[in-house]
Design a protein around this nucleic acid. Structure first.
Lengths: 124, 124
DNA sequence: GCTTGACTTCGAGTGCACTCGAAGGGGAAG
DNA sequence: CTTCCCCTTCGAGTGCACTCGAAGTCAAGC
């Protein structure tokens, strides 16, 4: 009745490698995962949710350093909630800015595509 | 009556370092820039426009490898216009996907912020 | 004439986030 | 019993895009 996923299974589920999962733990991005009788990691749904959240932070450009800071706050308990919120709001601002930049640059790309389209017309 | 900007000036204008500008040229991202009598680079408005375009491609996540491919096409002349357009449209698709990903992940971040906000309320 | 900034080649260093492999060992499933 | 996955520590390697520094030269501006 051992419950929870092994490293390999958890890795497959969240789209990271087993190597990387252990590395995340070692780097303090993930709190020590519970072990089964044989000392093997067992990831429960809480661990998985945490990993999913981390991957979202990663793909939105948060550095490992900042993720570690966040993980440390979370481990320190509920009295760090306000600071965690601030951290997230700063990150949110960066993401919004990034989106705005992308949309602005996309405009230039669209203009280029239009120009090329016209040149293709004229070449015929 | 030498016209055009020096490396340092051009670098300042486009937000890259002089080192990087020379490196871009060496890597084939930029066609050889015209020189003045003393052999120094002189960037004209065409060069600057090109550099600005490159920085947009960079900030939208295009790799140096792809920028080089694009630069080579541009150097090869007008008969590569269709291919350049395809390259841009593929890039555009990637950028749109990236924006969508960011917006999706931003939702999760917003949810987190809301949760933290409520926890802060309850702590009082 | 000195300072400043330009030129060249070249290789090495940086920062990030993995990513891999070695070496040696343990337990569970077919 | 063999295979497979897990465990550990450790250091080295990878890929990207710069980034820096050395070493030596040259020319324009003050």
């Amino acid at each position: 009745m051992t419950s929870g996923l092994t490293v390999g299974e958890a890795a497959a589920k969240v789209g990271l490698s087993a190597h990387t999962l252990r590395w995340y733990e070692q780097e303090g991005l993930v709190a020590p995962v519970n072990r089964d009788g044989a000392g093997r990691r067992r990831y429960d749904s809480g661990d998985l949710n945490w990993l999913v959240l981390l991957t979202r932070l990663r793909t939105t450009g948060m550095s490992v350093r900042d993720m570690r800071r966040y993980a440390e706050l979370a481990r320190r308990g509920p009295h760090t909630v306000a600071e965690r919120r601030r951290l997230f709001e700063e990150h949110k601002a960066r993401v919004l800015e990034r989106i705005a930049d992308l949309q602005r640059d996309l405009e230039a790309i669209n203009v280029k595509i239009e120009i090329y389209r016209q040149m293709e017309q004229e070449q015929q």
